[in-house]
Design a protein around this nucleic acid. Structure first.
Length: 790
DNA sequence: GTGCAGTTCTT
DNA sequence: AGAACTGCA
């Protein structure tokens, strides 16, 4: 190979252009081919969950966007074997070097080693860098060169290392790209538009992102329609199928609370450092506060460099220290500690590669876990009977997010009260958390489970009732996520099982039907835990004896069986077939899932109130009345009322979208706006909408078969034939808009809007039956962000 | 300085 | 649960 060959920069969990050492080195060396390989099968049990893939998808899109503005683009490949895919890329481009940044989870360590060997054997120069940590795991050890086994000592050493973490690198000014590999992956225009639709439907918070997408797509659409062919999109990251159709509806909601991508990450960091950081230590106690950094998903995907975080935060700390601001200084220490825990999780993972599947303390492997899928399910669904735990689990399910405190509460409950194997809980976190991170979560669960040298004592049980009053003193958080308890006085909110009958009645709660009784009593749990520990020590002693007698071979820690994985969990685990049994109440409970409402969507007043008759009525058709009362009563008050009205409309739309995607879905996601602008409502999810719009009750009817019959019906439309005046007839409210100056220039914009709306209609049979007024509501929803941009 | 009660934190 | 820390007499 000639020395002038280009460099392949292999992106993984370092999806940023700033402070990316591999990219920077590649740019320095000449021209660059940026590659991302999607090979989730390599992750085995840890196939990324729905929300995690959603994040990745958008993060990749933004990385691609940035790379494009620098002169290259991101080539994405779908593969089942990353190393083979890399070899392909190298061969196709004639690259002579491969650069990438380190990862520290066991799977990546093995894979990256393999990549290094395979490519080196082909004569490729392979170099790897540290982009994920302040200090590489092999650089931190005590004075005798031994590894640390407790966090405090580890972190102390990190903070007193003789040299500072590397300073962050600036983004490259431009990237010389190698014009090979283009055209290899060809998207067509319609899948792109689908993304746009969901993007738009969910965007109204993030104008910046909209502008980016808007420019990007407008150009693309103009070109494609002038040419009458759709090959403008090449090598788009979206060509990877990171979310399937049944997931898009739920995912659309995530975009309201989160903005993936490295430049958004950067903004989030700035916002945090200039805002909540100073109060970090004061506020960290509340479960519901919006004062955490919200940076974890950004950090997981490497959109943000920890070194940059570290340096910026330290600068603030020095500043506050000089001002004598004790609280601010303390806040920074605390925040850095959580960065330190992330650091430590990599350290542990690297040095003890089995830490994600095996307790670090040997004797714990003898603990007799309770293998009870019923408990497991109750926990996942937030039906354990302990309000704080249930509220947390429902928030997790609905939003993919949990405050750290609540993570501790629910996982500690899982391990200590239910005594389910922690690996199950970890797997569920992996599947549902937006910031799912193997190393961090393994560390967290090991800590909670007491399987670390410095973890919690194993025989300690935290009482969710007391924790409840500690983290959620007035029950605000519980009421938000468990509307069925909303009318319960604060005195009883964290222990409804003690409340007098009259109080429960007044609150509309019937324990055991409306809201469950505690699944396990704390005292019973304590007794069982003691027994289990006794058994564990006996087993351990027996095993040691057996080992000493040599009657058992190879029972060393390194060879013991890891705990088995849970039976398959699906994100949509609530999708049980609707049984036709007579027990309506039970049935209703099982299907109780969150749905979204939002106050953020702007709808013209009159329109919404009219159309809401429909949706409210349809809700009344839900086959139970038990929960109707509390839900309504809570929200049918004053100002909240209008909020809910608007919210219902959006809910209707979202559910409509979802039903079209997956008509069996009884569930739709819900979310919480960080600053509380949204009222979530728990409602029975029985397919009232598909009923209303002509589906059978089990939803397997119209909508899905419509899509089956017309899988790509939206492609049949030739958009160039839509006249501008035609569009203005459809959407007269925009006739006064000066769209990008000049009538001709306006056309692509209107076409785009038209396409979006039309595609929504085509994809959603419910809307086909609605009138034009409703249509205009929808267009208003979609146009709102466009208007702000224009 | 001492003793006590209440609080806060534990990776 | 227990150590460490607070405020107060």
């Amino acid at each position: 190979m000639s020395s002038g060959g280009c460099t392949v920069v292999w992106f993984r969990r370092d999806l940023r252009v700033e402070d990316n050492p591999a990219l920077a080195a590649g740019v320095r060396a000449g021209s660059v081919v940026a590659v991302f390989i999607w090979a989730p099968e390599e992750e085995g049990h840890y196939y990324p969950g729905r929300v995690s893939r959603w994040w990745l998808k958008h993060s990749l899109a933004q990385l691609d966007f940035s790379l494009r503005s620098l002169g290259t683009s991101l080539i994405t490949k779908r593969s089942t074997d990353s190393v083979a895919a890399l070899l392909d890329v190298v061969k196709a481009t004639g690259a002579t070097q491969l650069f990438f940044n380190h990862l520290y989870d066991p799977l990546s360590l093995v894979r990256d080693h393999r990549a290094k060997e395979a490519l080196t054997a082909e004569g490729i120069a392979v170099r790897s860098f540290n982009a994920d940590l302040l200090y590489e795991p092999w650089k931190v050890h005590d004075d005798e060169g031994r590894l640390f086994t407790t966090f405090a000592a580890f972190w102390d050493r990190c903070l007193t290392m003789p040299y500072d973490p590397e300073s962050p690198l600036l983004p490259p000014k431009r990237i010389t790209s190698e014009n090979v590999g283009y055209g290899e992956v060809r998207g067509d225009v319609m899948p792109e538009l689908e993304d746009l639709i969901f993007f738009n439907a969910a965007i109204d918070l993030d104008i910046i992102a909209l502008v980016q997408f808007w420019c990007h797509y407008t150009v693309a659409i103009e070109t494609s329609f002038n040419k009458e062919n759709c090959e403008v999109f090449r090598c788009r990251p979206d060509a990877l199928v990171l979310e399937d159709d049944s997931e898009k509806g739920s995912n659309a909601l995530l975009a309201r609370a989160w903005s993936p991508g490295w430049s958004n990450a950067d903004k989030a960091l700035t916002t945090f450092i200039n805002g909540p950081l100073i109060e970090y230590s004061k506020n960290r106690r509340k479960a519901d506060s919006a004062t955490t950094s919200f940076l974890s998903p950004h950090l997981h995907f490497g959109e943000l460099s920890v070194r940059k975080v570290y340096h910026l935060v330290r600068i603030k700390q020095v500043l506050w220290a000089n001002e004598g601001n004790k609280a601010g200084e303390e806040s920074v220490n605390l925040f850095l500690k959580s960065i330190g825990l992330r650091e430590y999780s990599r350290y542990i993972s690297f040095n003890y590669p089995h830490s994600h599947e095996r307790p670090l303390l040997g004797h714990l492997k003898f603990f007799p876990w309770v293998v009870d899928e019923g408990y497991f399910k109750a926990w996942r669904q937030g039906r354990t009977g302990y309000p704080l735990v249930d509220a947390g689990m429902r928030e997790l399910w609905a939003t993919g997010w949990l405050h750290d405190r609540i993570r501790v509460v629910v996982s500690s409950f899982f391990v200590k009260v239910l005594q389910l194997p922690w690996i199950w809980g970890m797997k569920y976190f992996w599947d549902t958390l937006l910031d799912a991170d193997l190393e961090s979560d393994a560390l967290g669960w090991q800590y909670i489970s007491g399987t670390l040298p410095d973890g919690r004592e194993f025989d300690r049980i935290d009482n969710p009732q007391f924790e409840g009053y500690k983290f959620d003193p007035i029950g605000e958080y519980v009421r938000r996520w468990l509307p069925e308890l909303a009318r319960l006085p604060t005195e009883w909110i964290h222990h409804p099982w003690n409340a007098p009958e009259s109080v429960l009645e007044a609150a509309g709660i019937e324990l055991g039907s409306n809201y469950p009784r505690p699944i396990v009593g704390i005292d019973a749990a304590k007794a069982r835990l003691e027994e289990a520990l006794l058994e564990m020590w006996q087993l351990e002693a027996a095993s040691r004896a057996a080992l000493e007698n040599g009657t058992e071979e190879g029972l060393g820690d390194s060879e013991s069986m890891p705990i088995a994985f849970p039976p398959d969990i699906h994100m949509d685990m609530d999708h049980e077939p609707i049984t036709t049994n007579q027990n309506t109440v039970r049935r209703y409970e099982d299907q109780m899932v969150p749905t979204l409402t939002s106050s953020l969507l702007r709808v013209e007043e009159e329109e919404s109130s009219l159309d809401l008759r429909n949706s409210v009525d349809s809700r009344a058709e839900v086959p139970t009345t038990i929960n109707q009362a509390p839900t309504r009563d809570v929200f049918d008050q004053g100002a909240v009322h209008t909020v809910q009205n608007n919210a219902n409309l959006s809910q209707n739309i979202m559910v409509g979208i979802r039903n079209a995607e997956d008509s069996t879905a009884e569930s739709s996601s819900s979310r919480r706006e960080r600053d509380g602008g949204v009222v979530p409502v728990w409602s029975p999810s029985t397919s009232s909408y598909s009923e209303q719009f002509g589906g059978e009750e089990n939803g397997s009817g119209t909508s899905s078969s419509f899509l089956r019959r017309h899988p790509r019906s939206h492609e049949l439309m030739n958009w160039t034939r839509l006249s501008q005046t035609g569009l203005l007839v459809m959407f007269p409210q925009y006739k006064d808009h000066k769209l990008r100056g000049g009538a001709n220039a306006a056309k692509p914009d209107l076409i785009l809007i038209g396409m979006v709306i039309y595609a929504i209609i085509l994809r959603n049979p419910p809307f086909q039956k609605t009138n034009t007024r409703y249509l205009r509501c929808i267009s208003t929803l979609i146009m709102y962000p466009v208007e702000s941009y224009l």
